[in-house]
Design a protein around this nucleic acid. Structure first.
Lengths: 353, 353
DNA sequence: CCAAGGTGATTAATCGTTTAATCAAGCATA
DNA sequence: TATGCTTGATTAAACGATTAATCACCTTGG
């Protein structure tokens, strides 16, 4: 609020009180030996003079900037804002600032982005790796958010178990022919989800996987999934591996005059903004991003601490939250398979949000 | 790549070459007087020793951190990733790092977020203000991304002119009863878009505005827009003020068995990820975010430079890009009004992406 | 031949904090 | 009374880059 005037320094506080700047530092950090009353006086003076610590000076002296980097893959991932928000939140709570770096989809850019962060002197970084890429040892503490299948200092949702929940959801609704829709075979996350879905559906349910990358390779980008034909073939369930695919499926079915959820059920993953807003609203699995962010920041904090005592380069199998559970959000895009009879209780737990 | 070993300092380079550290500084920054050959040797040595400048030391000495803050409103805005990416890109090109701060939707948080950034010593910040909030004078250079209606150091798309383009698009397709769909009366951006739409539609076309906040206040959040009734009333065009509303409208129409674009046309703003993927793909207006980001960073750079020479607090009416044009992306959700006759050329410019 | 001016480099102070080392008392113990 | 320990504070040296001031040397011009 007080505009223009540069913030006071420790030296100024010291001068104002006639003590040494070391004493001020000790009082404010609570580290050295300072009498209670002097300490109180110093704190008060600091308050009155509008003292703001110089992060630059502290960083220079201690070698720690109090800033962590957040490396994100291609921006097109609509889950990114939520991740970024959760990380920023958790980092701020832990006293860190968050510097962003975008890898613009390319692996080379990912490396460059990491380099830029290191040059800026971040204490560590959190990486959401680009699909199919590995983060080598970069001489800086790192925490990775990906899938539990990724080795290393990784925090993640339990995508497999989530898939299983969704598989069971379809099973309980009486579907017996379900199409799994995924984008890329390279993605650990998608593979985990697919595996879980199959496990949840069980052996009695017929399921098949549509890989969109294959489809688009042959038919061109943005081509239709041909779901109406699938419905004609007896498919009643369409479980997509993330919400964008679910939305694509939903609108295609609707366009072709197929009623969702009466004739076909559709589900996604991630609970993106629009999922609750679309009509019918989409049944999906929500990640507990705030927990993941907290875990990632905490794990990174440990890695940073370790990298100081132990020489060498961190990365411990630290986080005990390697598999954060996901939450099924049942909404209106899934319902009993047409022609099947199910207990009413299943549908009762839908919310309207 | 060289792991573990701390990066070399200027002093080390100086020692290795038997010169003074000041000379190294001069050679590397090209400022003082250094002979060409010595300068070359210094550069080479720096390269070989893997010199990485200490941002902390530089910041301490010069008072500039080379970091700018990016303050974003509620994360739920799906345009955020694109903005963040564009800013990060432009900032990196200008040699700045980007520290993010999230205002979590509340104005109080916005102020707190700004405060945190200032404490971290950012040289300036770019703010995407929360709807209806003002950014006071905060004693730090600022650039704002909002609407041209916002006073101050503002960069923005020309939402009004964009609305006009879309209005004309509907007019050229022969629609004569169009429903405008908006969320909040407080939003400068939305008001601009609405104004432009009305202007573009012209006086001959009947139009009405549906304010979703009013609807939800009376009917509860997530309630349907009741568009089928509107179609029955003769509405053939539905122009939403951003893509999320357009998507909501599209799916509601589809659910009720109304064919888009045969019986009704739907459009949005912002060209979010899903807009091109949905079936039918959504006609929308794309913002030129990279230009906006470049302008914002450049304007901020000037503001920062000014704030050093001129005492007092910056904010000049600098940017000559106060109204960056938007681009109409005609896709498959809009078409000739049912029963009207239009020239074929209009539909010809659709793309399939 | 001497003063003036230019060139290429060095010296040393500075930015604001942290922290190891030191110091002056005060008080208890032997 | 001399010794040792504790407490509360100070001194001073870093951290690494920037930069004004200074200096030594060499070239020119008068």
């Amino acid at each position: 609020m007080s505009v223009g005037r540069p913030p006071a320094t420790m030296t100024e506080i010291a001068a104002a009180l006639g003590v040494s700047s070391a004493t001020v530092s000790n009082a404010l950090s609570g580290k050295g030996r300072v009498s209670a009353e002097l300490s109180a006086k110093i704190r008060q003076a600091a308050e009155e003079l509008g003292y703001v610590p110089s992060h630059a000076a502290r960083a220079l002296r201690t070698g720690r900037t109090g800033v962590i980097g957040l490396v994100l893959p291609d921006i097109s991932n609509p889950l990114f804002p939520q991740i970024a928000q959760a990380i920023e939140q958790a980092a701020a709570a832990a006293g860190y600032g968050v510097l962003i770096a975008d890898s613009r989809g390319e692996t080379a850019q990912q490396t460059a982005a990491i380099g830029r962060l290191i040059e800026r002197g971040v204490d560590g970084m959190i990486v959401v790796p680009r699909r199919g890429s590995r983060i080598g040892d970069i001489g800086t503490p790192v925490a990775i958010i990906d899938s539990p299948s990724t080795p290393g200092n990784t925090v993640s949702s339990d995508h497999w178990e989530g898939g299983m929940q969704m598989g069971r959801h379809f099973a309980s609704l009486g579907h017996d022919k379900v199409l799994l829709i995924a984008q890329s075979r390279e993605s650990n996350v998608q593979n985990d989800r697919i595996g879980g879905l199959k496990a949840g559906l069980g052996d009695d349910i017929c399921c098949e996987t549509l890989w969109v990358e294959d489809l688009e390779a042959s038919q061109g980008a943005g081509s239709a999934f041909g779901l109406a034909d699938r419905v004609a073939d007896g498919f009643t369930g369409f479980a997509a591996v993330y919400d964008l695919l679910a939305l694509r499926a939903l609108t295609e079915l609707q366009r072709d005059g197929i009623d969702v959820p009466l004739q076909a059920s559709v589900s996604g993953f991630d609970d993106l903004v629009w999922s609750s807003v679309v009509i019918p609203s989409i049944t999906t699995l929500r990640q507990n991003l705030s927990t993941i962010a907290e875990c990632a920041v905490e794990a990174l904090g440990h890695a940073i601490a370790d990298s100081e005592t132990l020489s060498g380069t961190s990365i411990a199998g630290r986080p005990n939250c390697e598999r954060v559970p996901m939450m099924l959000v049942a909404r209106h895009s899934t319902g009993p398979a047409s022609g099947s009879v199910v207990s009413a209780s299943v549908n009762a737990r839908k919310d309207s949000g």
